[in-house]
């Protein structure tokens, strides 16, 4: 294998201007050599896989080892990458399984706060006691979300998977994924409204 790959840091970061990501699906083209496609997948997916893995276990070495094992298998069994319907959710799913299996070798543990998220910067500005209260309410609402809701949100909003792809990873149907996200959004709506409302007056 003499292919070169280049690390692009921005694969998971949004375009700062618009906050949008451009999404190009990875798929194997007949005209391509497998080696070239393999390298393309590695280049495009490494950061995504790394970030997703870190959300699950926060252990850099473990994540890297699992990514390596995953790609090593993809090399040995080339049919997988060529035939899989959509590469990204498939790889995320495999990585999750590998990490979970490794973690399972430890005692069963539920310590990791998987898919932890923060309050976005625009709402972080506290300029009054009222806003501090509202923000506290929002953090509380956020904390009340379940890990599955967070994972669904991560995959759909942050990793830009479709509902179908997200549900493939969560092993539920698309409708249930929709419900997970809808309930999460409903749970935080009130506090967002308050935060926005008061920010007009200050």
């Amino acid at each position: 294998m003499n292919l070169k790959v280049a690390h692009t840091k921005s694969t998971s970061k949004r375009d700062l201007e618009s906050g949008k990501k451009s999404v190009k699906p990875l798929s194997y083209k007949e005209s391509q050599s497998f080696e070239a496609f393999y390298a393309e997948v590695y280049e495009n997916m490494f950061q995504n896989l790394f970030a997703y893995g870190m959300q699950i276990c926060r252990n850099k070495d473990l994540v890297k080892d699992c990514i390596q094992e995953l790609f090593s298998e993809l090399w040995k069994n080339q049919k997988i990458l060529v035939n899989v319907k959509s590469v990204k959710p498939y790889l995320l799913k495999c990585l999750k399984r590998k990490i979970k299996r490794e973690l399972g070798k430890e005692k069963k543990s539920f310590i990791q706060s998987e898919f932890e998220f923060e309050i976005s910067h625009e709402l972080k500005l506290i300029n009054s006691q009222q806003q501090a209260n509202n923000q506290h309410m929002l953090s509380k609402a956020i904390k009340s979300l379940t890990a599955r809701q967070r994972e669904a949100i991560y995959l759909r909003f942050y990793d830009n998977l479709s509902y179908e792809e997200t549900s493939e990873i969560l092993k539920i149907n698309a409708k249930a994924t929709y419900k997970l996200i809808y309930r999460a959004l409903s749970a935080i709506k009130e506090s967002i409204i308050l935060l926005l409302f008061f920010s007009f007056f200050t």
């Binding site: 590695y42 950061q47 970030a51 890297k64 998220f117 625009e122 709402l123 991560y154 942050y158």
Partner: peptide, 23 residues
């Protein structure tokens, strides 16, 4: 839009070394 944008996850960036080491 705010509801969707609200969710900011911790950004775990792989370093160039990580990327090259695994490759």
């Amino acid at each position: 839009r705010k509801l969707i944008r609200q969710f900011t996850f911790k950004d775990y960036q792989a370093s160039e070394e990580d990327f090259n080491e695994v490759w």
